[in-house]
Design a protein around this nucleic acid. Structure first.
Lengths: 353, 353
DNA sequence: CTGAAAGCGCTTACAG
DNA sequence: CTGAAAGCGCTTACAG
């Protein structure tokens, strides 16, 4: 359905021109330097002139041009940062985005956001798109295996902070989750519930966090002296559909798993769908990595190893702004703990209890 | 846990300076005008000079400054747009964001995003923050009741498109959902399943879409000659918790509803939580407005009136870029239909079947 | 095919 | 307290 509005009239040409400080100066019979002082609240302008300039600015509806001011200003700040996420529509990414926005907002800084889609080429493309628009800093969830392309920008004074995943081939601030310990904790929990045949459903193995979560799986099994069974290990699953297919097939094999560790939010969803389709969601245990929105509505509830996404975003933003405020200390690598949130699905008893 | 990296050495001063066209020109023994031509792929430069300039640019790792170029360029384009969402972390908002990003990406345009949080002051603040950074256009999900503050910017040539909610006191392009028809369809569906006492759970009544959905509720009941019972109507619920409290209390009254129409995603979640807590999720019917991520995992499934969020975002972005490409036709108001997606909760039979 | 001069809208670094 | 001149990093509008 389309409705068309009234014919848009061409406004008189003079109204279409954005007034500059020059026009404000002319209207208030002063210099643009004085207008600049008034607009920027600099002290030392007589009350009379301040009033005249403000009146002229209001009359013309003057709106300062921050891009021009930052070009000339000695600090060259645009009060803008760039944020590279996996996908702005992913719940993990968007929660991170919001946490960062809140810190930036308090400082009058606005945020460019973009989706990298696990594509290294897209990562460099987006980073350069933001850098060429002279963002004051970047917060990046890296996808590629080499972030050395950012060394030059960092050296030239653009602070860069990595979130969720550590960068490679560059020394920089980062805030990540302890993925290995989190995964180990999740899988150990399943072992303590009496499980031995525990399937691993992993994300793309090019992603460092996927690697680390697999290491945690190995460590938990190793500690319990349970041998890894290769037919239970699936990697490179990056959609719910892929995970669902794998789990559906896995339930049909000779020695199916009694428990599943799903190492990422979409993978957990796929696994839960597969189990529910065949009515095994009350018999096969599941622990997932990452939180899922409104997951408390499920019955049984889902046991999840959840990251502190808000803490990660806030800390990444704070690190960035500390550098922008002039901090020049050594780079910091922060690691946040995972919380295992019991929900029911992870407490389904296994055969060895 | 914090680990500190190696002490960051101060790079030699010359390395910290961002090379400009002037430096590239000096190194390649030509003028900055010629460098500009080469960097912008303008024709009419001799092969020899092109090679010399490119070599110099590479040697210095020259990165063009788009903010400076847009300041001088006659089209004044920054290849940047601003997006005002209700909340970047809300699933509806972030899906809209992604759809818009995809259209912008194809044109080399990057996106500023910000959360308005249903706050009119925040809306104007964000819009001005983006405008002062000279975005080429704005896409806005408005929160306030008056968007006339944008008229001046529109007149000066910044196209503005409204999404999800129509603007007030300004003539502009918009893409919204047919909320009234969608709500009417949802409530009629409940009536057809045999319900008469149908509760209405509404979002903040300052929001136009909340108003429209209430109109749809009224229309459906009116058409079926069912009287509206005021003790079943709740408005101004804007969190899941508020909705949960209301439904919990409502189940205790003398004449409780046999069905619930929840007019927004978070409100639906609150209603479902309340019903599940008391084990009435298989006896009281529910239809919700807006999609919910991974809702198919629920049993019974949830019947939802879902909007075409991707279509809304794409269309809003296309309208914006059409204006940026010079289209000057009358404003267009697009209205997208709602799809009622049956899930089970909405098909629970009522007493009048 | 190439380049010197001017200027986008501001702030800096002065001088008075 | 006020303002004229220069310049941020580019592109425009010329001229040769």
């Amino acid at each position: 359905v389309v409705k068309q509005g009234t014919e848009s009239e061409e406004a008189p040409l003079e109204r279409r021109i954005r007034p500059t400080m020059r026009e404000v100066a002319a209207l208030s019979s002063t210099s643009i330097k004085t207008v600049s002082r008034v607009i920027n609240n600099e002290p030392g302008v007589s009350d009379d002139l301040v009033q005249r300039v403000l009146a002229a600015a209001r009359a013309l509806n003057y709106q300062p041009d921050l891009t021009a001011s930052s070009l000339r200003r000695s600090d060259r700040k645009t009060r803008t940062i760039g944020l590279l996420l996996e996908n702005v529509a992913n719940p993990f990414s968007s929660a991170l985005h919001r946490a960062i926005e809140d810190i930036a907002r308090a400082r009058g800084v606005v945020v460019f956001a973009g989706s990298v889609d696990e594509d290294a080429a897209r990562e460099t493309e987006l980073a350069h798109a933001f850098l060429s628009r002279r963002v004051d800093g970047l917060i990046i969830v890296p996808a590629g295996g080499d972030q050395s392309y950012l060394a030059e920008a960092a050296r030239r004074g653009t602070p860069i902070v990595f979130a969720d995943r550590k960068p490679r081939f560059i020394d920089a601030d980062s805030v990540v989750t302890d993925n290995t310990a989190g995964a180990q904790q999740a899988v150990s929990h399943l072992i303590h519930q009496g499980h031995r045949r525990i399937a691993f459903l992993g994300d793309l193995s090019t992603i460092s966090t996927a690697q680390e979560r697999y290491l945690g799986y190995q460590a938990a099994l190793g500690q319990a002296r349970v041998k890894i069974e290769s037919h239970l290990v699936f990697r490179d699953l990056n959609t719910a559909d892929a995970a669902q297919s794998v789990v559906t097939a896995l339930l049909e094999v000779a020695e199916p798993p009694t428990a599943i560790f799903a190492s990422q939010n979409l993978v957990t969803v796929g696994a839960l769908r597969a189990l529910r389709n065949v009515g095994k969601h009350r018999t096969i245990a599941v622990v997932g990595f990452d939180d899922l929105p409104f997951i408390d509505l499920l019955d049984p509830g889902v046991t999840l190893a959840v990251q502190d996404v808000v803490g990660m975003g806030s800390m990444a933003a704070e690190l960035l702004f500390r550098r922008l405020d002039g901090h020049t200390g050594p780079t910091e690598q922060h690691v946040l703990p995972v919380e295992l949130r019991l929900g029911g699905s992870g407490e389904i008893a296994g055969p060895y209890l």
